[in-house]
Amino acid sequence: MEFLKEIEEILNRYPDRQGALLPSLYVAQKEYGWLSQESYEAVAQALNLPPATVKGVATFYAMYKHKPMGRHLIQLCTNVACMVMGAERLVDLLKNKYGLEPGGTTEDGRFSLVIMECIGACDKAPAMLVDTDFHADLNEKRIIEILESYK
Protein backbone atom coordinates (compact mmCIF):
# COMPACT_ATOMS: atom_id res chain seq x y z
CA MET A 1 0.00 0.00 0.00
CA GLU A 2 1.27 3.44 -0.98
CA PHE A 3 0.15 4.96 2.32
CA LEU A 4 2.16 2.58 4.46
CA LYS A 5 5.17 2.85 2.21
CA GLU A 6 5.20 6.60 2.50
CA ILE A 7 4.91 6.39 6.27
CA GLU A 8 7.72 3.87 6.37
CA GLU A 9 9.92 6.36 4.52
CA ILE A 10 8.98 9.15 6.86
CA LEU A 11 9.88 6.97 9.82
CA ASN A 12 13.47 6.85 8.59
CA ARG A 13 13.81 10.53 9.31
CA TYR A 14 12.88 10.38 12.99
CA PRO A 15 14.39 8.73 16.02
CA ASP A 16 11.03 7.45 17.22
CA ARG A 17 7.63 6.65 15.79
CA GLN A 18 5.75 9.59 17.22
CA GLY A 19 8.16 11.96 15.51
CA ALA A 20 6.66 10.86 12.23
CA LEU A 21 3.16 11.80 13.30
CA LEU A 22 2.76 15.24 11.76
CA PRO A 23 4.05 14.24 8.33
CA SER A 24 2.04 11.02 8.48
CA LEU A 25 -1.10 13.00 9.13
CA TYR A 26 -0.39 14.95 5.97
CA VAL A 27 -0.05 11.67 4.11
CA ALA A 28 -3.35 10.48 5.53
CA GLN A 29 -5.01 13.76 4.66
CA LYS A 30 -3.84 13.36 1.12
CA GLU A 31 -5.02 9.74 1.03
CA TYR A 32 -8.43 10.27 2.62
CA GLY A 33 -9.07 13.90 1.66
CA TRP A 34 -9.62 14.80 5.29
CA LEU A 35 -8.89 13.31 8.69
CA SER A 36 -11.74 11.05 9.67
CA GLN A 37 -11.85 8.73 12.65
CA GLU A 38 -10.88 5.99 10.25
CA SER A 39 -7.81 7.84 9.05
CA TYR A 40 -6.69 8.56 12.61
CA GLU A 41 -6.93 4.86 13.27
CA ALA A 42 -4.95 4.05 10.17
CA VAL A 43 -2.18 6.43 11.23
CA ALA A 44 -2.30 5.14 14.80
CA GLN A 45 -1.99 1.61 13.54
CA ALA A 46 0.89 2.44 11.22
CA LEU A 47 2.83 4.27 13.91
CA ASN A 48 1.79 2.07 16.83
CA LEU A 49 0.40 5.07 18.66
CA PRO A 50 -2.82 5.30 20.65
CA PRO A 51 -5.62 6.63 18.43
CA ALA A 52 -6.59 9.23 21.03
CA THR A 53 -3.07 10.62 20.98
CA VAL A 54 -3.19 10.88 17.20
CA LYS A 55 -6.49 12.70 17.32
CA GLY A 56 -5.33 15.03 20.05
CA VAL A 57 -2.30 16.02 18.04
CA ALA A 58 -4.17 16.33 14.76
CA THR A 59 -6.86 18.61 16.15
CA PHE A 60 -4.31 20.96 17.66
CA TYR A 61 -3.15 22.09 14.25
CA ALA A 62 -5.27 24.29 12.07
CA MET A 63 -4.12 22.90 8.74
CA TYR A 64 -5.43 19.40 9.25
CA LYS A 65 -8.96 19.09 8.08
CA HIS A 66 -11.47 17.38 10.25
CA LYS A 67 -14.34 17.33 7.84
CA PRO A 68 -14.66 16.64 4.14
CA MET A 69 -13.35 19.42 1.92
CA GLY A 70 -14.23 20.63 -1.54
CA ARG A 71 -12.04 19.89 -4.54
CA HIS A 72 -10.12 23.09 -4.04
CA LEU A 73 -9.21 24.63 -0.75
CA ILE A 74 -9.09 28.41 -0.60
CA GLN A 75 -7.02 29.58 2.33
CA LEU A 76 -7.57 33.29 2.51
CA CYS A 77 -5.63 35.44 4.95
CA THR A 78 -7.53 38.09 6.90
CA ASN A 79 -4.90 38.99 9.44
CA VAL A 80 -4.03 42.63 10.06
CA ALA A 81 -2.09 43.41 6.90
CA CYS A 82 -4.57 41.64 4.64
CA MET A 83 -7.46 43.13 6.53
CA VAL A 84 -6.06 46.63 6.16
CA MET A 85 -5.55 45.97 2.47
CA GLY A 86 -9.11 44.84 1.93
CA ALA A 87 -9.43 41.12 2.66
CA GLU A 88 -12.82 41.54 4.29
CA ARG A 89 -14.34 42.63 1.03
CA LEU A 90 -13.03 39.44 -0.54
CA VAL A 91 -14.66 37.34 2.12
CA ASP A 92 -17.95 39.07 1.39
CA LEU A 93 -17.45 38.55 -2.28
CA LEU A 94 -16.93 34.81 -1.90
CA LYS A 95 -20.08 34.65 0.14
CA ASN A 96 -22.10 36.52 -2.44
CA LYS A 97 -20.67 34.99 -5.54
CA TYR A 98 -20.20 31.37 -4.50
CA GLY A 99 -22.30 31.12 -1.38
CA LEU A 100 -19.08 30.27 0.36
CA GLU A 101 -18.93 30.88 4.10
CA PRO A 102 -15.72 30.74 6.10
CA GLY A 103 -15.26 27.12 7.12
CA GLY A 104 -17.78 26.01 4.53
CA THR A 105 -17.87 24.32 1.17
CA THR A 106 -19.76 25.29 -1.97
CA GLU A 107 -22.78 23.17 -2.76
CA ASP A 108 -21.16 21.74 -5.86
CA GLY A 109 -18.16 20.71 -3.80
CA ARG A 110 -15.85 22.84 -5.86
CA PHE A 111 -14.42 25.13 -3.19
CA SER A 112 -13.92 25.14 0.52
CA LEU A 113 -12.92 28.32 2.29
CA VAL A 114 -10.72 28.55 5.34
CA ILE A 115 -9.80 31.86 6.89
CA MET A 116 -6.10 31.99 7.64
CA GLU A 117 -4.00 33.82 10.10
CA CYS A 118 -0.97 35.52 8.54
CA ILE A 119 0.41 33.52 5.62
CA GLY A 120 3.58 35.59 5.31
CA ALA A 121 2.63 37.62 2.26
CA CYS A 122 1.85 40.93 3.91
CA ASP A 123 3.81 42.87 1.30
CA LYS A 124 1.43 41.61 -1.35
CA ALA A 125 -1.71 41.69 0.73
CA PRO A 126 -4.37 40.49 0.50
CA ALA A 127 -3.15 37.00 -0.27
CA MET A 128 -4.36 33.44 -0.34
CA LEU A 129 -3.38 29.89 -1.05
CA VAL A 130 -5.50 27.80 -3.36
CA ASP A 131 -4.49 24.24 -2.67
CA THR A 132 -0.71 24.72 -2.64
CA ASP A 133 -0.64 27.63 -5.10
CA PHE A 134 0.11 31.04 -3.79
CA HIS A 135 -1.80 34.11 -5.04
CA ALA A 136 -1.25 37.66 -3.89
CA ASP A 137 -2.12 41.29 -4.55
CA LEU A 138 -5.74 40.24 -4.71
CA ASN A 139 -8.64 42.44 -5.42
CA GLU A 140 -12.23 41.68 -6.27
CA LYS A 141 -11.55 41.24 -9.94
CA ARG A 142 -8.37 39.25 -9.61
CA ILE A 143 -9.69 36.78 -7.10
CA ILE A 144 -12.54 35.80 -9.37
CA GLU A 145 -10.25 35.41 -12.35
CA ILE A 146 -7.95 33.22 -10.33
CA LEU A 147 -10.69 31.09 -8.85
CA GLU A 148 -12.28 30.57 -12.22
CA SER A 149 -9.19 28.72 -13.33
CA TYR A 150 -9.86 26.06 -10.67
CA LYS A 151 -12.57 23.76 -11.88
Binding site: Q18, G19, L22, L25, G56, A62, M63, M116
Partner: peptide, 22 residues
Amino acid sequence: QGAGAYICGEETALIESIEGKR
Protein backbone atom coordinates in the same frame (compact mmCIF):
# COMPACT_ATOMS: atom_id res chain seq x y z
CA GLN B 1 6.33 20.68 8.01
CA GLY B 2 4.26 22.47 10.60
CA ALA B 3 0.53 22.50 10.32
CA GLY B 4 -0.83 25.86 11.25
CA ALA B 5 0.02 26.77 14.82
CA TYR B 6 1.73 30.07 15.60
CA ILE B 7 2.75 28.84 19.02
CA CYS B 8 5.02 26.27 17.40
CA GLY B 9 7.36 29.13 16.66
CA GLU B 10 8.12 29.20 20.37
CA GLU B 11 11.12 26.98 20.66
CA THR B 12 9.88 24.44 23.19
CA ALA B 13 6.50 24.14 21.48
CA LEU B 14 8.43 23.68 18.27
CA ILE B 15 10.31 20.80 19.84
CA GLU B 16 7.08 19.21 21.01
CA SER B 17 5.74 19.55 17.51
CA ILE B 18 8.80 17.92 15.96
CA GLU B 19 8.35 15.10 18.40
CA GLY B 20 4.86 14.64 17.00
CA LYS B 21 2.99 16.14 19.92
CA ARG B 22 0.54 18.93 20.53
